[in-house]
Nucleic acid binder design. Structure first.
Lengths: 342, 342
DNA sequence: GCGGGGTGTCGAAGCGCTTCGACAAGCTAC
DNA sequence: GTAGCTTGTCGAAGCGCTTCGACACCCCGC
C-alpha cells in the first residue's frame, strides 16, 4: 500500500499538481467545480500531505516546540495542564507540538531551530536569570515565554499577574475582617534562585495588606512536615493575633493544615487559609481551600496565540499579564468576634 | 544569515555532498582524513541537517509521537513523569517527541502516521477496550502501548505488574503480622470502565492475602472527603479487627488519613497503611506513606527502547511487565499485640 | 471588433537531503 | 603481470511538495 501523494490526487481529479496544492492552501483562486473535484479526490484517496516535503518546500514545519524546564520543585500537574492547553490550541492553528526538556540544554534549542524542525518556541517556567533568554535573543527564533525574566524587553512573555494574586489574597482576608495576616511562601531556595513569581506574590501580598491597613508578615516555608510544623508553630507564637494565612506553596499546603490542626487551631473557625495553588490541590485538601488558582489553560492558550501571531508576522505586546481570581471554598470565613473582655 | 546546508559543508571540506552525508550517517566507509575534514567543516559552520529534507529523502522523520489520553481522573504528575522519561530516552536514540492529546481523536493518529510526521507511536494509559487499539492494528504503524488492552496479541505493551503490586502490598502487611487487611481502590466508575490495572491490583491483593492466610476485603472508593470518611467508617465498623489498609487511589489517600484520624485510629500505631501511588504523594502525606510507587521513569524508558527496536526491524515481546517494589516509610509497622484479655 | 484586465490553470524549478550505481586506486593471490 | 577484491569517493536521480511565471480564456468597454 504505497502512500498517497499529491500527484495521485491530481491525476484522479484530472488537474495539475499545482492546482491541488492551491486548492489545499487557498493561496490562489480556484473555481468551485475544480475545488470540488480535488476535494473529492482527496477524500477518496485519504490523502495527507507529507510533512517533510511540505516543510522542505515551504520552509514552515507547522510544528512548535514546547520547552519544559523540569527543575526540581516544579509542580507537575500544572505543567501538564499548560502542556495540554498548548497542544490543543496549537492544533486549532494546524500546528503540532514537539516536547522538549531542558536536559538537552541550550544546544537543544539551537538544534531544533537550526534544523528547521520547528517554526517557533514556547518556553515554560522562565526564571529571572534564565540561561535560555540570551540564546533566544541571539537566535532570533520566534518565541513566547511563560514567566518573566529580569529584562523582558524585546521578548514576548505571558504569566499570571502574581503581584495581583498576592494582593487579591490579602484583600479577600481584609474583606472578611481579618486584621493580622501572614504569607507562607516557597522554600528559601526558590527566593534565592530568583524565580520572580515568588517575590512578586510576596510584594503584592505585603502591599495589598498595607493598603488595607493590615498587619502583615511573610515567611518562606520549607516543604517537609516537620519543617512546616515548626514554621507554623513559631509563626503563631510570634503573632498570636494572626487569623489569616496565605499559603503559596503547593507541597506545604497539606502540612500547614495538619500543623494547624495539631496546634489546636481550627480552619476556618480560628484561622482562615487562602492558597495560591492549582485547583486540584485546593479541592483535595480538607477542608477544601479557598484559593487563587493558576489559570494554566488560559496561559497556555495565550502563549500559543501570541506565537501564532508572531509567526504570521504580526506584532504582539512584550508582556501579557492574566488577572487572578479568588475561588471561595471552605477554608475562609469572617473573623470571629474578639472574645468579650474580662 | 542564510542557513547552512550540506552543500556548504561539502564545499568547505573539498568533498562531494554525498561524502558528507556518508560521514554523518556512517552508512559507508569513509577514510579517517576525509572524516576529519568534514567534521571540522561541520563544526566550523555550525551545520545542522534540515529535518524536513532529511525526512523527505530518508523516509524517516526521527520523531515519535507520545499520545496522552487526558481522560478525567488521570493522575497528571505521573503522566508528566512518563512524558519526560520518554523524551529523555528518545533523545538518546536521536529522536524527538511529538506530543499529542486524545482530543483530536483517532483521526489524529491517522494524520500523523499518514503525513509521515512520526516514525512510531507511544500510547499512554491504554484501556481494556481502547478505541485506539483496532486503529493501531489497521494502520500497522510501529507502536508501543503503556497499559494493557483486553487482547494484547500482536501489540507491544509495557506496564507495572499491577497484579504483583497488589500481592506485594498484602505480603508486606502479612510479614508485619497483620491478619485482617483491606484494599481501598479506585472509584466505582473506574472499575466499570474496565481500566485493567484497577482490577488486576485487586486480584493480586486478594490472592496475595489468601496465600498468606489473611482475611481480606476490597472496596472501591470515591474521592470526595465525605465519601471517603463514610467508606472508611463503615469499613472499620464491619471489620473491627482490621489493622492493615492498602489504598490504591491517589486522590483519596489524604482523605483516608484524615478519616482515620477523625475516627481516633492512629497511623501506624493502630492501622498500617500502604499506598499504591506516586512517590510525591506518598512523601507529602503525614505521616509519609509506605508505598508501591509507579516506576514512571522505567516504564517510559522501556516503552521507547521497545519502539526503537521495532523501528530498526527487531522483534520484541508482546508484553513487558515491570516488577513492583515496596518503599517503606512511616505508615506501616508490626501489628500491635492484642490487648491482654480481661 | 479589438485591446486590456481579470480568472483559473498549468509546467517546471527548486527546497536540502539520502542513496544508488559507477569508478578509480590500491591491494592480494596466483 | 593480471584477474578479482576492497575501499573510498563522486555525480545524479529522486523524495513530495510549494511557488513562480506563463498563458489561455472570457468578459468588458469603446
Amino acid at each position: 500500500m504505497r502512500t498517497v501523494t499529491i500527484a495521485d490526487v491530481a491525476r484522479r481529479a484530472g488537474v495539475a499538481v499545482s492546482t491541488v496544492s492551491y486548492v489545499l492552501s487557498g493561496k490562489r483562486a480556484i473555481s468551485a467545480t475544480t475545488t470540488q473535484r480535488v476535494m473529492d479526490s482527496v477524500r477518496a484517496l485519504g490523502y495527507h500531505p507529507n510533512a517533510g516535503a511540505r516543510a522542505l518546500a515551504s520552509k514552515r514545519s507547522n510544528v512548535i516546540a514546547l520547552v519544559l524546564p523540569l527543575r526540581a520543585g516544579m509542580h507537575l500537574p500544572v505543567l501538564m495542564r499548560f502542556a495540554t492547553s498548548v497542544v490543543t490550541t496549537a492544533r486549532q492553528f494546524d500546528h503540532d507540538v514537539l516536547l522538549m526538556t531542558a536536559d538537552e540544554g541550550p544546544d537543544g534549542l539551537r538544534r531544533v531551530a537550526a534544523s528547521a524542525l520547528v517554526d517557533g518556541l514556547v518556553l515554560m517556567d522562565v526564571e529571572i536569570h534564565d540561561p535560555r533568554v540570551p540564546l533566544l535573543r541571539e537566535m532570533g527564533e520566534p518565541s513566547v515565554l511563560i514567566g518573566f525574566p529580569a529584562d523582558p524587553s524585546g521578548l514576548t512573555c505571558v504569566d499570571l499577574d502574581f503581584t495581583r494574586a498576592g494582593a487579591v489574597c490579602a484583600e479577600h482576608l481584609a474583606a472578611l475582617g481579618h486584621r493580622e495576616i501572614a504569607l507562607l511562601g516557597a522554600p528559601r531556595v526558590v527566593y534565592r534562585r530568583g524565580t520572580g513569581y515568588a517575590e512578586r506574590t510576596m510584594e503584592g501580598f505585603l502591599e495589598g495588606g498595607r493598603v488595607g491597613g493590615l498587619t502583615t508578615v511573610a515567611w518562606p516555608c520549607e516543604e517537609g512536615f516537620d519543617e512546616v510544623s515548626a514554621t507554623v508553630a513559631s509563626l503563631l507564637e510570634r503573632h498570636p493575633g494572626l487569623s489569616g494565612l496565605v499559603v503559596h506553596n503547593e507541597a506545604a499546603v497539606g502540612h500547614v493544615l495538619g500543623a494547624l490542626r495539631a496546634l489546636g487551631r481550627r480552619v476556618p473557625e480560628d484561622v482562615s487559609v487562602v492558597a495560591i495553588c492549582p485547583d486540584d490541590v485546593a479541592e483535595r485538601a480538607s477542608p477544601p481551600l479557598t484559593s487563587v488558582p493558576i489559570p494554566a489553560d488560559d496561559v497556555g492558550r495565550q502563549a500559543v496565540r501570541l506565537l501564532m501571531t508572531k509567526l504570521e508576522g504580526g506584532t504582539v505586546p512584550d508582556s501579557t499579564l492574566l488577572e487572578p481570581h479568588v475561588t471561595i471554598r471552605q477554608s475562609t470565613r469572617p473573623r470571629a468576634a474578639d472574645p468579650a473582655p474580662g
